[in-house]
Design a protein around this nucleic acid. Structure first.
Length: 654
DNA sequence: GCGATCAGGT
DNA sequence: CACACCTGATCGC
């Protein structure tokens, strides 16, 4: 292993400023993509989500996973902003909240959602009487809250699953979005299906590389109605396989992918390790934190588990693979694949882009990204998040207000989380209000894997002794908390639920007599603007989304091509890219990225260098903050970064 | 019988 | 909307 991310190769000015005004050979497809409005995208997304669930995947992977890019686009060879280059301070504009009041104490007919009545069209057929307590006891997560909050278990009598209709579905009902290479194939309906007709925008919206993708071994068999049913594997979407490699990223639910030699797990969230079971028997690479989580929860033979520390490289099949912090959940990494030919591919996994990332030396040493696999979770202009430290500040403010208003009351705080993630929010509350934390056994085990002492030390075993409970995000709703609180009413007077999520952007706190819930905008994915800025900064030759729009894993959105493809005079007018440090430093609560304790031959990143020469833009507090950070941020472990982000930001704010 | 998977919930 | 999770039903070893 070698550490190559902490150093910047010195490039001379001419090298940095070389410009290259080649016009992009834009395809008509690109143009049609660019002209799409976000509203249209949203619409299409909805339609697709509704229709693709009906689509049946009949094919399975049989062919080699090697993918050949069909679009090669020329571009300028350097970082440069477009006229509309985003300024970092636009990220921190406090959003005007459009609050809607919801009184939970009196549920009006209009609030039917809260009653959890089955939605129109939902196939939920319950037998009101029968209960299955055995199944309850089987649940491995024997958390107290389960027992406490569980509504009487109801049994679904007639499961109306698509799987059931597998044999009854005729080939004509199947749209195969993944293999457009064979228009006359058996899988293609002779007449466009109703689904296809219902979404004319699909072809332009979807990343469907014209690859001769895997054809299913069992295609013949499954088209034969007399064949015994066999569970069909999902087709592996092309973006799971790193182009021109035998590497698979976060793709475990597709069986053994032919020719795959190495698998990568970007982070330990369920939607990324789905399919990873004890039977897995291939080399698997991940961060040390993720590896500990895997060892804890999935008994995979240890001979297959390999670690890549953040900022370190390994070489596999003559390709240098480097892991960098993804600013997502603990242990989340992005992967850079550097071929001996010079080709370079970045896979972001799930990540939250930030301007700090732009100062990573690897992006300056390796300025040409040929292909970017991008986390497009919030690829819609509606999503414009504040910085996480701002979110944390808001949570603390709201909680403090709540405390002041109910000074005489004993308050149980309940914060939503996933198995891992959102730690910075509840840790801030712990440190600010001296709370003790209880969480479910599984999450507690996960926290033990994080090697994050402050989290560990805040935990206690007895939920009645803890005034902050960290439970699943899905349970931070009025009805569930209402139920949950019944067990603790002898110990506490009020419950304050906290939902830290990107979806809480415009949510309004709802204060009740017993139960109050505050939603706080807190995202561990990139906002639309952060995505745009990141892509414009990297200027990859091509971008592929890794986030499916609906249930069909093969259908992903198209990243706006004008973020990375330059046409006409735009390319000629653009200048050498140089992010302005003054823009960063003028933003409150920000600190320049620190590069302490890197190897000694390191020079300042262009961003920091610029900051020194533009010192008139530094105000005193920023200087003090950055000096403090230099001394305290000794290690560049991701855990430390999380910690310093949360606690330093908080200290500087309060 | 039980682990894996899926659809459908929050 | 659907983050990343849970749940019950079914499949398949």
């Amino acid at each position: 292993m070698s550490t190559n991310v902490g150093t910047i190769r010195l490039r001379n000015l001419a090298e940095l400023q070389i410009s290259n005004f080649e016009e992009v050979a834009a395809t008509t497809k690109c143009i049609s993509e660019e002209t799409k409005t976000p509203e249209k995208q949203k619409k299409a997304r909805k339609v697709r989500a509704a229709t693709t669930t009906k689509k049946k995947i009949k094919d399975e992977i049989t062919n080699a996973p090697s993918i050949v890019s069909s679009t090669v686009v020329k571009r300028n060879g350097k970082k440069e902003p477009l006229p509309g280059q985003l300024r970092i301070d636009s990220f921190f504009k406090s959003s005007t909240k459009n609050y809607k009041v919801e009184h939970f104490t009196t549920i009006s007919p209009g609030k039917a959602k809260l009653r959890r009545t089955p939605r129109k069209g939902c196939k939920r057929l319950f037998d009101e009487k029968s209960t299955t307590t055995e199944s309850l006891s089987k649940v491995s997560d024997i958390s107290l809250e389960h027992k406490l909050s569980r509504k009487p278990t109801r049994k679904r009598t007639q499961p109306q699953r698509n799987a059931k209709a597998k044999c009854a579905t005729s080939p004509a009902d199947v749209i195969d979005l993944c293999s457009d290479a064979e228009p006359e194939s058996d899988n293609k309906p002779a007449v466009p299906s109703v689904f296809e007709a219902a979404r004319p925008e699909t072809p332009a919206m979807v990343n469907i590389p014209s690859l001769n993708l895997q054809r299913n071994l069992e295609t013949e068999a499954s088209s034969n109605e007399n064949m015994p049913k066999t569970r069909q594997r999902k087709r592996c979407p092309p973006y799971k396989i790193v182009e021109d490699t035998t590497f698979v990223v976060d793709g475990f639910q597709f069986g053994d992918i032919p020719n795959a030699t190495h698998y990568f797990l970007s982070h330990y969230h369920g939607d990324h390790y789905v399919g990873l079971t004890r039977k897995f028997a291939h080399p698997l690479y991940m961060s040390p934190i993720t590896a500990r989580l895997v060892r804890t929860f999935i008994p995979i033979d240890s001979q297959y588990l390999h670690e890549i520390a953040v900022d370190q490289s390994i070489t596999l099949n003559d390709i240098e693979v480097t892991a960098i912090d993804a600013n997502h959940c603990p242990g989340a990494i992005m992967l850079i694949f550097k071929f001996s030919t010079g080709k370079c591919i970045l896979h972001t996994g799930d990540f939250r882009a930030s301007f700090e990332m732009e100062s990573l030396p690897i992006f300056w040493n390796q300025p040409n990204i040929d292909l970017l696999y991008l986390d497009t979770t919030y690829l819609s202009q509606n999503y414009d998040f504040c910085h996480q430290s701002d979110s944390i500040y808001r949570v603390c403010s709201l909680v403090r207000q709540f405390h002041e208003k109910h000074a005489s009351k004993r308050i149980l705080h309940v914060c939503g989380s996933y198995l891992i993630g959102k730690e910075k929010v509840w840790l801030a509350l712990v440190e600010e209000f001296r709370l003790r934390v209880w969480t479910e056994p599984n999450r507690r085990k996960a926290i033990d894997c994080l090697d994050w002492p402050e989290l560990k030390h805040s935990l206690c075993d007895d939920p009645f002794e803890a005034n902050l409970h960290v439970i699943n995000m899905g349970k931070i709703s009025y009805p569930q908390l209402d139920q949950y609180f019944k067990q603790f009413e002898g110990h506490y007077d009020m419950l304050l639920g906290i939902r830290p999520s990107g979806w809480e952007k415009n949510s309004k706190p709802s204060y009740g007599k017993r139960i109050s819930v505050i939603g706080v905008e807190y995202s561990e994915h990139s906002s639309y603007k952060e995505l745009e800025r990141f892509v414009r900064f990297l200027k990859p030759k091509n971008v592929i989304s890794t986030v499916p729009l609906g249930r069909d894993l093969c259908v992903t959105p198209t990243v706006p091509t004008n973020w990375f493809k330059y046409k006409g005079y735009g390319g000629m007018l653009s200048k050498s890219y140089q992010p302005s440090i003054s823009t960063f430093l003028e933003t409150p609560q920000r600190k320049p990225p620190t590069m302490a304790n890197r190897s000694t031959n390191m020079i300042l990143s262009p961003i920091e260098n610029c900051g020194i020469t533009n010192s008139e833009n530094l105000d005193d507090r920023d200087i003090a903050e950055s000096a403090k950070d230099d001394s305290t941020e000794a290690a560049h472990q991701s855990v430390d970064r999380f910690m310093s982000d949360a606690s330093n930001d908080l200290l500087s704010i309060i």
